[in-house]
Design a binder for these strands. Structure first.
Lengths: 255, 255
DNA sequence: CCAAAAGTGTTGTTTTTACACCCATGA
DNA sequence: TCATGGGTGTAAAAACAACACTTTTGG
């Protein structure tokens, strides 16, 4: 059985989108002390993919990325950052594409737009897990958060794209503040620390972390503490958005 | 008078190159205490441009960048690093392109490959000024080093591309060693310091810089000193390539 | 012998690291 | 009341910054 939407999309794509170019989004979230990534499961396939799409004829990459992410997952006005162009001639494997079209019962002529070689621009975003409700689009039958490292083999070179995004994220951590988009508006110091530890993949000293983060002066202590938890109630913080933005621009060390 | 080469190139381009995509190279060199950038002056134009070009149908971006830089400037086997995709819909201005074609006496039909909107992938490289002899290609009548900041207005958005490359270079300086490709094989500590000062745009303390760099253990003191200079003969160094490469991968702080 | 640039040393300050201790809370 | 996690202090070590002094060279 053919998928009406996919057929229609493929038939019209060459009129609407640039050729040879696509984009893929690596959306990171954080929950339960785990770094997550948002993935789509395509219909007629048992493999998962990064939410990706194509660029309209007169659209900037950045605009396209925001639009694509919204169309494919329902996420709204997310700040996406480009991080790498993936251009290996073998990356957009026609065998894999053909197999998928066959399962969907769609035939496309050889030399069709969809069968081109594609280069993909990778974008990444950090989002607050708790405020987001992913919705799969018409091409997918699931949209879900996966633990980093438990995604298994993604389609095409998407595993590589994910890995590269993670590498860039780790590097950024050393000279830019992180957390504003990954944590809820109010959070505790141990929660922020857990986030850092998860991204870096190693333990940090609780007390030194506390001092260090405070020295950046990007946090505002709130007048409340987290209630209903076992043990001592931890102080709640929120980010000082003004200073946070400043630190994003100028770096943390004030180098 | 038409330029045979340009006409031929434009006529055949759509058969050979991907559509909508180009690349531009920002090649940095260092000479006389000045950071330089390699520019081309197009024939029939008084404005300068970054060496740029197009991507063949089955070529990776990285391969294309090396090829383009070689074809356009004669530079050989240069390591180029992608740093940003420039995709503003207005960046590839048809007014400017048309004016140039008119001056060259070339007519291209509306809707021609060359009149497409182009996205450009920016690459940058650091090269040893002294070992390089730039040669303009058939489309250009000059290929020369310019002081950063004295380039004037470049074509299209090339000034912006150059600025962005410089921004990335400055950022890199804080966590990666630099100099191997910008200095001759043998150099003195003050020369290396001058390079850092030029890129950073500020003075550094001579003695602290000395100690700091040595602590990275990426330099090998040679048994010779620079001869024939006024005042005390400075010690010559070369990079320890093994350790340099290691530092490139792992970062300097050992973060 | 002197001016100018190169090399080395010292010292006080700041930052980082590795801890020990106290506090609050639910079970 | 006790185990557990949260908050604060402190001292040693390392890194950094600011400087003074010595050495070498060409003129």
């Amino acid at each position: 059985m053919a998928q009406k939407e996919l057929k229609e999309f493929i038939d019209n794509a060459s009129q609407i989108y640039l050729s040879h170019l696509s984009l893929d989004c690596v959306v990171f979230g954080f929950h339960d002390g785990q770094l997550k990534v948002l993935l789509l499961k395509m219909k007629n396939s048992d493999r998962w993919s990064l939410p990706g799409g194509f660029i309209k004829q007169a659209e900037s990459m950045e605009t396209a990325a925001i639009r694509v992410l919204n169309e494919r997952t329902g996420l709204d006005s997310i700040f996406l950052q480009q991080f790498h162009v993936f251009s290996d001639p073998g990356r957009s494997d026609n065998k894999e594409k053909n197999a998928h079209l066959r399962r969907a019962g769609i035939a496309v002529p050889a030399g069709h737009w969809f069968m081109q070689r594609f280069l993909s621009v990778g974008f990444y975003a950090l989002v607050d897990f708790s405020t987001v409700t992913p919705q799969p689009d018409a091409f997918s039958d699931d949209c879900a958060w996966w633990d980093i490292g438990e995604t298994g083999q993604l389609i095409l070179d998407h595993s590589r794209i994910l890995f590269k995004a993670l590498e860039v994220l780790r590097l950024q951590l050393h000279y830019q503040p992180i957390g504003y988009n990954l944590l809820p508006p109010k959070f505790t110091m141990p929660e922020l620390q857990k986030l850092y530890e998860t991204i870096l993949g190693r333990k940090l000293d609780r007390r030194n972390f506390h001092r260090k983060i405070l020295s950046y002066e990007i946090l505002r202590p709130l007048k409340e503490k987290r209630q209903g938890v076992a043990h001592k109630a931890p102080q709640l913080y929120s980010f000082d958005t003004i200073k946070y933005q400043k630190a994003l621009k100028e770096g943390l060390g004030g180098i």
